[in-house]
Design a protein around this nucleic acid. Structure first.
Lengths: 351, 351
DNA sequence: CTGTTAGCGCATTCAC
DNA sequence: GTGAATGCGCTAACAG
């Protein structure tokens, strides 16, 4: 059941079948119809491997992420996939699990399958690894860090701005002692957020005690443990900013277990705005990374201007994405002050 | 940079290169070494498309799921992928999004890429669709429903047992008025759990008021809304069982907003045991579906039926997986009773 | 508009 | 052990 069988049944050549499959305009409508009917009756399914081999194009877009288990990524993956499919592309996903060996394996897979482009959404990847793509002239788009270069575009999320929004919100509420629970500091992505916090903290002239910064692991258990350490401090902070929502959720558990209330006793703010954050108790105030924008931008960068309505440059483009502050109920005035919140807050079902 | 270039550099034929790549024992150690060195210096990467075309085998395992955004699935995907990779296979993932059209598209993708087997982890798929795989003798393993058949294995999670454990736990705590928030009842997977509840409810002689069962959507917002409806009832239940953890988390939000306490005023139990469930406040009592077992079993079923010489499709096996009850803190004695919990409960960091 | 032909890169008979 | 030759299913010139 290959193209030849279809050709025979439709009384045409394989070339004509191939043309109708690919929607070539130079096929007469009725032969096309005949071919389509033949495909139908034969239950013909195109062999993508053969097509890729023959044409050189795979119609595959690679997507490398750190850990599918972090809820931020599935949402990103879904958006990426939706847009890719709408552009006639497919997506090959690979998890690095923060492991260099495994990362190399992911890259090899991408190379083996001859992807038309790769979006690298984990910053834990060496420049050496990227060179594998560049040598083969495979477009690369990066999330998070660094400068654009020939053949490689960058999407930078404005972490400093995001952190600044959160910090400003807290200071406005009277907070002066603000803690930070970072991600694993051996990861670039986590360090970026950490540095943004340190800078913002200095800018606001806050007490930057070393013990106010605790390292987590971007998962709830790390946030839980880090928060326990913070709660054990002699001078406890009145607010905590976390490197991602999962960390915040873990931290909230530790706060409740200590018999404290959120936000009356301690305020907490997350980062990412995963779906669940609207449904924690209290709903989590957070800084949203607009994942649909990230996905759209990544695909735009990969495919260039031809296939998408926008007319951005293709090579070495740089995109900056602004996070969005989402005030919910986990952050409030400092204890003892009846500061009334002016800004509208989001509820569970809306923004 | 193909096999031919390697062959030339190593002074051998392409056949020999192919053999050393595939670890054929009939290659002399030192020619193999020479070939490997040549591959190294040329940065040779195998073209998987060509290999699949030439050999007929793709080394790809398909995995069809409903919605990557539901946290249960990433955990499953990860386990599946880990095991597949350890077996020298790769994984092609596809989301149906509960959409029949999109489901058909997923199946087509699998067929096009010539997968060696497919694990279908969504029950929303018609028998007609499966026939596409069976006709091509592609092994299929199903999660959730139905009987095994030639060429198709089934993994059944013992939902009735899981529901029974939860119900028994609640009745033991004195609960008689137990609500259920189902998933979307047009989905088989949701209906299965719903029916298990109804049967268990009848068995325990509980008040099976129609309004005690509310339909959700397996996402937090559905649980939230369904819970609001339940709380508006004149005779409010003392406990709620939900069709999955996400639903439970949404429901908890509604309970708190109504000014009620968990579990003092109302108990709640989830289903799945996603990672986050240990970190809700209070930690969610739930029924765990052991996703690693599911993944391992699925791959076993696929690989076991694959490389067999028989041309007739082998009869599919049937596997039954037992859920595990995970008592945490969201379920307690009925209001007003000082019933003390005998059983040990899991904390946030352990089981 | 349509057919013919020659690869794409690899696995796999067969010979040697 | 190794090499030469054939074909997997499709696309892409090039003719007509």
């Amino acid at each position: 059941m290959n193209i030849k069988a279809v050709a025979k049944l439709a009384n045409v050549s394989t070339a004509t079948v191939s043309r109708t499959i690919n929607g070539s305009p130079k096929v007469s409508p009725d032969t096309a119809a005949r071919v389509r009917k033949a495909m139908e009756t034969l239950n013909f399914v195109l062999n993508t491997n053969a097509r890729a081999l023959g044409s050189g194009r795979s119609n595959l877009l690679g997507l490398i992420i750190s850990d599918i288990t972090n809820p931020f990524f599935p949402e990103l993956v879904k958006a990426f996939e939706d847009i890719a499919v709408s552009q006639g592309k497919e997506v090959l996903i690979a998890n690095t699990d923060y492991d260099p060996d495994r990362t190399m394996h992911c890259v090899t897979r991408m190379l083996q399958r001859k992807v038309d482009g790769v979006a690298i959404m984990t910053s834990e990847i060496s420049e050496h690894v990227i060179s594998f793509f560049l040598k083969r002239k495979i477009p690369v788009v990066f999330l998070d860090t660094g400068e654009p270069a020939p053949g490689i575009s960058r999407i930078n999320i404005d972490y400093p701005a995001g952190v600044e929004m959160a910090m400003h919100y807290l200071t406005q509420l009277g907070h002066k002692d603000i803690s930070f629970i970072s991600g694993p500091l051996n990861l670039n992505s986590a360090r970026t957020r950490y540095q943004a916090f340190m800078e913002s903290s200095a800018r606001e002239h806050l007490s930057a005690k070393a013990e106010y910064v605790q390292e987590g692991n971007h998962r709830p258990d790390g946030g839980y443990r880090a928060m326990q350490r913070i709660l054990a401090l002699e001078h406890r902070p009145t607010a905590v900013l976390t490197s991602n929502d999962l960390t915040a959720i873990g931290a909230m558990g530790a706060i409740f277990e200590a018999g404290l209330r959120i936000p009356q006793d301690i305020s907490i703010i997350g980062f990412d705005d995963i779906q669940l954050s609207a449904f924690t108790e209290p709903p989590l105030t957070t800084v949203r990374i607009p994942h649909k924008d990230v996905a759209r931008t990544a695909i735009e960068a990969l495919l260039g201007t031809q296939d998408l309505p926008s007319k951005e440059p293709r090579d070495g483009a740089q995109y900056k994405i602004q996070p969005i502050f989402v005030p919910r109920r986990s952050a409030g005035p400092i204890p003892g002050e009846a500061h009334s919140l002016k800004r509208r807050r989001a509820d569970r079902l809306h923004v």
